[in-house]
Each structure stands twice: as structure tokens, then as C-alpha cells.
Write a protein that binds this DNA or RNA. Structure first.
Lengths: 145, 145
DNA sequence: CCGATTGGTCAGGATAGCTGACTATTTTAG
DNA sequence: CTAAAATAGTCAGCTATCCTGACCAATCGG
């Protein structure tokens, strides 16, 4: 490195953190300031469809005990419910409340806003090239792909 | 987004995490598997020069109590010492041990290896363009710049 | 030289992770 | 059809990493 900038991995972290914080601020703005980062990561996974606790734990990369604790908190705060799984008496489906569905949509929209800001700042082609490079890089850096 | 890839910020996180884990694995390989991520972040800051606890805390973005605890652990494990600051009787300088200096150099080298792998995978010009875009993006995403 | 600032610690608490042990239910194999 | 194995989830207890608030000791500025 001939420049005095941090390593590329750190530069990525900086931009990633900025996105995360923008989303969390947006959540706080709409009165969901009580959601923590770990809780947000869980909610994100549930946005497409309800899921069993065990699957949720596996997808977020934590133990089911940890996931269970976070689900407890989110349930107490009214962001989700555990409903019995009709296909398996042992299991329950972790299901977003209407409010949480709305929040997830809002979060996704905020991410789009951030990306469009980046796109404007860098110029469309530089941004698209960067994104393409990151997608390509995922092939050799994502163990969960 | 017309593709089914994660948002750009998440793609960045994936690559960043890969770098971090490569460095931590390398540390484990050379017998420093006892160092945690939080400790590693502190050591990194100390690599250029010794520093007071308060400065260290500020630069790493934690309270001085937290930094103090991490320094306690690292001192017990022989990675650093607190030496009196000759210029201020209240203060002590947190100073890397020889072993820690060697580890920091090794970590920096591992980062270079990872980056050169990325460069080879993407091609030099795509990699350099991506890095340039990230450096540019830092202007609008790094609150500590 | 005395009050304000600064360097650092102590005490206590929250969050987010972990392992291990356990219950209850379902699935599978004999 | 039943006994064993696998699966869903919880309970208890531990650790690490952060936080706030209160405090002591040394230095610095007027």
C-alpha cells in the first residue's frame, strides 16, 4: 500500500457500519429505538417468512439458546409471536407482528436510500463496478454462500 | 436491486469478516490463539507507538474502563506492560512487549496476503478501482475521519 | 497554592454470546 | 407396534465486552 489509507477490509467495515447506523437511526426515528442490533439481525431474517427457532438460529449463526433469548425480548416488546407449528407439535413458528413487518419494510427502504446516496456520490458506473466486484469477491470470502 | 444479492453494505461486511478471520486464524497458528477480537483491536492501535490508556480508549471508541479491563487481560498474558509516563506522574504508557510487536507485524503481513489474493481473483484494475471507490466513499461514511 | 482538570481505578449492571443438561415430541428401524 | 434415535426448544450457569456513576491521586493554571 503506497497510500496512507486503512486496509481494504477496514474501508469496507467503515462503510458497512455507516449503513447499519443509518438504519438503526431510522428505526429510532419511528419510535423503534428499543431494538438492538442483534435483535434487528433476527428480524431481518424473518422478514421473508416465519421460521422455526432452530432454523433462525442456524441462519443467523448463533446457538438456539441465544436466538431464543432474543426472541423472548422481541416477543415481550410486541415485535413477534411464537405460534404453534401445525406440522410439528414440538415446534413453534416465530412470526413477525404487523408492526415488525412494517419496520422491516422501512429498514429495507432506508438501505436503498443509503445505496442511492453512494451511487450519486461515486457516479453510477463506479458504484455499479464496485458492487459487481463485491459480489464477485463474495465467491471467495463468504463461508455461508 | 434486480439481482438477488444482499445489499452492498452486507457484501462489504462479508468481505471484511473474511479478512478479520484470516488474521485471527494466523494468530492462532503462531500460538496466539488466546487473543480475542477486542484485544486485537487494541493491540493494533498500539503498534505504531505506546499510548496512554485514556488516548487508547478514545481512539478505539470505548470507555477508559473498558480499555482498562482489556489492558489488564493483555498485561496478564504478557502482550504489554504499563510503564510510568516520565512526563506525567498520573499517567502510564501502555507499551507492547516484543512478542506483541512481532504479532502485529505478522497480522499486517496477513492482511497484505489477503488483499493480494483479492487482487489476483478480481484482476488488478478491478481491485484497484474497488479500493479507490471505497476510499472515496469513506469521505461520506466515516464519522471519525 | 488552591481549585479545576486529567489519568486511572473500583463497583455494579446490561447485552450477547457460549456449553451442558434436560423435557417433550416426532421419526425411524426392527 | 414399539423402542430407539433424532429433533425442537428450554433452563441454568458461565464468559466477554461493553456501559454509567462514583471516586482517588496527580498535575496544571491563575
Amino acid at each position: 500500500m503506497t497510500d496512507d489509507q486503512p486496509p481494504t477490509g477496514v474501508l469496507m467495515f467503515i462503510a458497512h457500519r455507516a449503513t447499519e447506523q443509518r438504519v438503526m437511526s431510522r428505526m429510532a426515528e419511528v419510535g423503534a429505538g428499543d431494538i438492538t442490533l442483534a435483535q434487528a439481525r433476527l428480524l431481518q431474517r424473518l422478514a421473508p417468512e416465519p421460521m422455526r427457532l432452530t432454523d433462525l438460529a442456524e441462519q443467523t449463526g448463533v446457538t438456539k439458546q441465544t436466538a431464543g433469548g432474543l426472541v423472548d425480548q422481541l416477543e415481550a416488546a410486541g415485535y413477534l409471536r411464537r405460534v404453534p407449528d401445525p406440522s410439528d407439535g414440538r415446534a413453534r413458528l416465530v412470526t413477525l407482528s404487523d408492526r415488525a413487518v412494517a419496520l422491516c419494510a422501512l429498514a429495507a427502504r432506508e438501505v436503498e436510500v443509503v445505496e442511492s446516496e453512494w451511487r450519486e456520490y461515486l457516479g453510477a458506473s463506479r458504484f455499479d463496478d464496485m458492487r459487481a466486484a463485491l459480489i464477485s469477491l463474495r465467491e471467495i470470502t463468504d463461508p455461508y454462500r
